[in-house]
Amino acid sequence: MKSLRYTLIGEGFAEYEFIPSYLNWISKWHGIKFVQSKIRLPLSRPSGVSRVIENAEFLCEQSFYGTSPADLFIIGIDLDRADATDEQVHHKKRTLELEKSLGDFYSKLKQQIILFVPVQAIDYWIRYQQVTSVANSLESKSKDEIKQLVYGSKTPDRKQITRITRAIAEKADFDELARQSHSFKHFHEQVISFLKTAANP
């Protein structure tokens, strides 16, 4: 089975549970195995948008040309707001911000870089898999409300976030999630596009 090495850079604890579970799920359909590199922002505390943006270019370069070069670089930041526009204007603007933070690496290595920008935050993706909801309906709720619903607290600690995210992500229907969330679909389509090339070079 072909192994693909990836680096994941995200803002918080939920990303480091949710995205690997998703990759594990999708890899089964493509006969490959994803292996996570050791490069990451330290998890002793959530990273926040600015820390991801500040380190994006450097970590991307390290990921592709450092000691154990990766095949794929996945990086994401929260939109931190709703986006009710038909064209997803705010989502596009934020995604562009992330692209720019990667400097020349994004233009030269676009096929191997995947960006994720959850509308509001990744907790909304998790909530869609917790309860049946109308597509793109949750993002209008406040972050505090969604955190309370997902984790049982507006200020969940690392243990709560990790435990609940892992439990939901392991059983998630990601095809369904792509129908429920625009921002997840944007991420999912990039992964599929990458796999079409990488799994069958």
């Binding site: 996570q36 050791k38 990451r40 330290p42």
Partner: peptide
Amino acid sequence: LYGILGGVPENL
């Protein structure tokens, strides 16, 4: 700590 040099525990 970012894991760039190696010499870090797995999955932490």
